[in-house]
Simulated scan of single mutants.
Amino acid sequence: MTSVQIVEVGPRDGFQNIGPFIPTETKIAMIRDLTAAGLRRMEVTSFVSPRAIPQLADAAEVLADVLAQGATMPQVLVPNARYGQKAIDAGARFLSYAISVSESHSRSNVRATPHEALADYARLVAEAPAGVRMRINLATAFHCPYEGMTQPAAVLTLLGRSLEICPDAEVCLCDTTGRGTPAQVAALFEAAMTAYPEVSAWAMHAHDTYGHGTANVRAAYDRGVRIFDSAIGGLGGCPYAPGASGNVATEDVVRLFGDCGVETGVDLAALMPLATAASSLPGVKWSCSTVAAEAGAARLV
């Protein structure tokens, strides 16, 4: 049976926009429950300025527990080399580094141009000790909230430059605003895979702003992608992408692949109560999970 790997990003991308601070013990408990449901790879937190994203100020404590449990592979998002080193010092061995294709989004997100962010990525790669794995997230690969649709040539150029720095990095194309369409997703992955056949691991990060999330996941799968980001309960949204709603919901992606006969290793029945719990966290404004909605968990405030 064909299988895919789901990367649960709720503990990072899902939690980062929630205003009331989620107690560290609540985050840890949810990560443990998600692991028990079969999610064995997670973006558990981000090492970032607590002034910019106070919700993730407990990154070191959350990561320490995940490492101590040893049951899931923790992935950590870092915005620059400085915080990448902080993550490494805390024990992180799988770093996810985001570079926006759009200059406007890059300046808003990390206060640097894509060229400057790429140079910082090069410093991080050069300074990282042996055994640290890298993922490069190309944000706004399909659309920018400030500049509109992204040109595929710009994505391919930035991707090529990032691969010169770290040829064995996992590559993730990110639909940051959720405006990508299945045809656009299929075309960009086909172009990228043709241009850079040496890439061994491709991933898709989808949002569900216009209800295209699962369709875009399927389009990427049909082009050979086997790693997919999703968030429990459809939580999330980029704080520097106005109008972007939540990530494609983990439970929707699990159901999609289950209906297609594709193995995820995730127990949907065990996942559903967690979707309800995630959607009900104080400060969650809404959930775009259709499966959670069926269970009465989704809400719009």
Rank of each mutant, 00 (worst) to 15 (best):
P273G: 02
A278L: 06
G211T: 05
T2S: 15
A277E: 14
A71M: 13
G148A: 07
E61M: 01
Q69S: 15
P145F: 01
P167F: 09
T250E: 00
S102L: 03
F21Q: 13
P129G: 04
A244H: 00
F15Q: 01
A117C: 13
P114M: 08
Q55V: 07
N109P: 11
P167N: 06
E127I: 11
Q69M: 13
T2K: 14
M30N: 09
Y146S: 05
T214V: 15
A87V: 07
M42I: 12
A297T: 06
Y221A: 06
S46D: 03
A270P: 08
P114I: 06
S100I: 11
G180T: 10
D13N: 13
E170C: 02
W202F: 03
H212W: 11
C288H: 10
Q16Y: 00
A187D: 10
T276P: 03
R123Y: 03
G265T: 01
V4W: 04
E8R: 05
V262Q: 08
A59E: 14
I31W: 12
N216H: 08
G19D: 07
V155C: 08
A215E: 10
L173A: 01
E198D: 09
A219M: 07
D267P: 03
V254L: 02
S280P: 02
I99C: 05
V78K: 12
D13K: 13
A169H: 09
F189S: 05
F15H: 03
T250W: 03
R123S: 08
L300G: 04
P239D: 10
A122I: 06
T276G: 08
R107G: 05
S280C: 04
A269N: 00
D175Q: 03
A92C: 05
T35R: 09
F228S: 04
A206N: 14
G265H: 02
M134Q: 03
Q75R: 15
R255S: 02
P50W: 13
D222Y: 00
V301R: 12
G234K: 06
I232P: 03
R223I: 11
G178W: 04
L159F: 05
M42H: 11
Q69K: 12
R135Y: 06
L268R: 00
Q151D: 15
M42A: 14
T264C: 02
A231R: 09
G237T: 02
L77I: 14
C260P: 07
A295T: 07
Q16V: 05
L138S: 02
R161Q: 15
G10A: 15
P273M: 02
Q5L: 13
C288E: 12
A186V: 12
Y121R: 06
A81N: 10
I99P: 06
A277N: 06
A297Q: 06
G261C: 10
T26I: 10
G261L: 11
T194S: 15
G261F: 12
D259V: 09
L63E: 14
C260Q: 15
Q75V: 14
V66P: 08
A201C: 13
K86P: 05
F15M: 00
R82W: 14
E251M: 07
V199W: 04
